[in-house]
């Protein structure tokens, strides 16, 4: 359907896997290596969904979410957090900052696609 998804994660392997899976399912993917990089790109380009890790250097997931929700271009897009189960307080923080949903690592490719479809409506 021509939707674009940004994946922000400092782990190259995760970015690669996410990218691959989503492209296989017909989405366009834009990668960002940390929160800062993501925010810069998001201020210049409209995307349909943001997938972000919570732990990144320079600007972490929470900071990125807050940044996006106060920006202009991508203010209302669905944002999905990638979190590990030992980070539940972060997850609550993320929700408060404006995240739409979450996926718990480790996750299977099918689970990723299911959540993406769910929040894209």
């Amino acid at each position: 359907m021509g939707k674009t998804i940004m994946t922000a994660d400092d782990s190259a392997s995760i970015r690669q896997m996410v990218s691959f899976t989503l492209k296989q399912n017909g989405y366009e993917v834009v990668e960002a290596v940390d929160g800062q990089d993501a925010l810069t790109k998001l201020n210049a380009k409209k995307v349909d969904l943001l997938l972000t890790d919570l732990n990144m250097p320079k600007l972490d997931g929470i900071g990125l979410i807050k940044g996006v929700r106060t920006s202009k271009l991508n203010k209302f897009i669905p944002i999905v957090m990638l979190t590990t189960e030992s980070q539940d307080s972060k997850k609550a923080e993320g929700k408060k900052a404006g995240a739409t949903g979450w996926i718990v690592k480790p996750f299977k490719p099918e689970q990723l696609v299911a959540v993406v479809k769910k929040v894209l409506g």
Binding site: D10, S11, S13, I14, M17, N55, P57, T84, S86, K105, P106, F107
Partner: peptide
């Protein structure tokens, strides 16, 4: 911390469960 966290998370993703389990203790 971040290095441990990443290795744990990605390790689990790609099937390295022993690595994930071990690294978890260090990360904690």
């Amino acid at each position: 911390f971040r290095a441990m966290h990443t290795i744990k998370g990605s390790g689990a993703m790609f099937g390295f469960d022993e690595v994930a389990e071990f690294t978890h203790e260090v990360e904690t």
